[in-house]
Simulated scan of single mutants.
Amino acid sequence: MENLLTERIKDHLYYIGVNDRETQLFENMWPLPDGVAYNSFLMTGEKNIIIDLVKVNTVSSYIEKVQEILKEDSLDYIVINHVEPDHSSGILNILELYPDVKLICNKKTVPFLKTYYGIEDNLIVVSEGETLELGNRKLTFYMTPMVHWPESMVTYEEESKTLFSQDIFGGFGTLNGAIFDDQVKFDDNYYSETTRYFINIVGKYASQALKALNKLKDLEISTICPVHGPIWRKEPERIVKLYTDLAQQKVKDAVLIIYGSMYGNTERMAEAVARGVAKGGITDIRIRDVGKTPFSYLLAEAWETKGIILGSCSYNNNIFPPMSFLMEELKQQKMKNNIWGIFGSYSWSGGALKRLREFTEGNKCEVLERQPEIQGAANEEELRELIQLGEDMARAILES
Rank of each mutant, 00 (worst) to 15 (best):
Q67E: 14
L75M: 03
S61K: 15
V66K: 04
D76W: 04
S61I: 08
Q67A: 06
D73M: 03
K47M: 13
S60N: 15
D73C: 02
E68C: 08
K65Q: 09
V66S: 01
V59F: 09
K71E: 13
V56F: 13
Y77L: 01
N48C: 06
K65F: 07
T58I: 07
Y62R: 05
E72Y: 15
D52R: 05
I50E: 04
Q67G: 01
Y62F: 15
L70T: 08
K55W: 15
D76P: 01
T58F: 10
I69G: 02
D73G: 05
S61T: 13
I63E: 06
V54F: 11
E72A: 05
L70G: 12
L53N: 08
L70D: 07
T58N: 11
I63F: 07
N57A: 05
V54T: 07
V59D: 03
Y77G: 00
D52I: 00
K55Q: 11
I50C: 02
Y62S: 10
T58Q: 08
S61L: 10
E64P: 04
L53D: 02
L75R: 03
K47V: 06
Y77W: 12
Q67R: 14
N48H: 09
K55A: 12
I51F: 14
L53H: 01
Y77Q: 01
I50D: 00
Y62P: 07
L75A: 01
E68H: 09
K71W: 11
Y77N: 05
V56D: 11
K47C: 05
E72D: 14
E72K: 15
D52V: 00
I49D: 00
N57I: 12
I51E: 11
Y62E: 02
K55S: 00
Y77C: 00
I49V: 10
L53I: 07
I78F: 09
E64M: 08
I69R: 05
K65R: 12
I49H: 05
E72N: 11
I51S: 07
S61V: 12
T58L: 10
I63R: 12
I49W: 05
I50K: 09
E64N: 10
I51N: 10
E72T: 13
N57V: 14
I63D: 02
N57E: 12
V59H: 14
L70W: 06
D73I: 02
L75G: 03
L53Q: 07
I49L: 02
I78V: 09
Y77F: 14
N57H: 08
I49R: 06
D52L: 06
V56Y: 10
L75E: 00
V66A: 02
K65N: 15
I51R: 03
L70F: 11
K55M: 10
N48K: 11
K47I: 07
S60P: 06
N48W: 07
I51H: 04
K55L: 06
K71R: 15
I63A: 08
Y77D: 00
D52W: 05
